[in-house]
Amino acid sequence: MQPQVQQMLEKLEHLSPERLAEVEDFIDFLQQRDQDKHLRQDYVQASEAAFNQVWDNDDDAVYDKL
Rank of each mutant, 00 (worst) to 15 (best):
A49N: 00
A50P: 06
Q6W: 04
Q45P: 03
M1I: 14
D34Y: 02
Q41L: 13
L39K: 02
Y43F: 14
Q4I: 06
V23A: 03
D28M: 10
V54T: 06
F26D: 11
R33A: 15
D34F: 01
Q7N: 01
L12R: 01
E10I: 03
E10Q: 11
D58M: 03
Y43I: 01
D59I: 14
L20A: 05
Q7R: 08
F29A: 15
D25A: 15
E10G: 05
N57Y: 03
L66G: 01
Q2W: 11
Q7I: 13
D25G: 06
W55G: 02
A46P: 06
Q41H: 04
D58R: 13
M8Q: 02
R40Y: 08
Q35K: 04
N52P: 06
W55P: 02
L9G: 00
E22I: 02
F29W: 03
A46K: 09
A21P: 03
Q35C: 05
F26H: 14
Q4T: 10
V23F: 01
L20T: 06
E24N: 10
E22L: 15
S16V: 07
V23L: 05
E10K: 12
E22Q: 10
E13D: 09
V23Y: 01
V54W: 06
Q7H: 00
A61I: 04
R33L: 15
V62K: 02
K37A: 14
Q32A: 13
A61H: 14
H14Y: 12
R40L: 14
M8E: 05
M1F: 07
Y43G: 14
V44S: 02
V44C: 06
E13W: 06
L9K: 05
V23S: 00
A61Q: 07
D42L: 14
K11I: 11
L20Y: 03
Q45M: 01
Q2K: 12
W55I: 10
L39P: 00
Q31H: 12
V54A: 12
S16M: 12
S16R: 09
N57V: 09
D60Y: 11
S47N: 01
F29H: 14
M8I: 11
A46S: 02
K11V: 13
D36H: 04
Q31P: 05
Q35G: 09
Y63F: 15
F51S: 05
D56M: 08
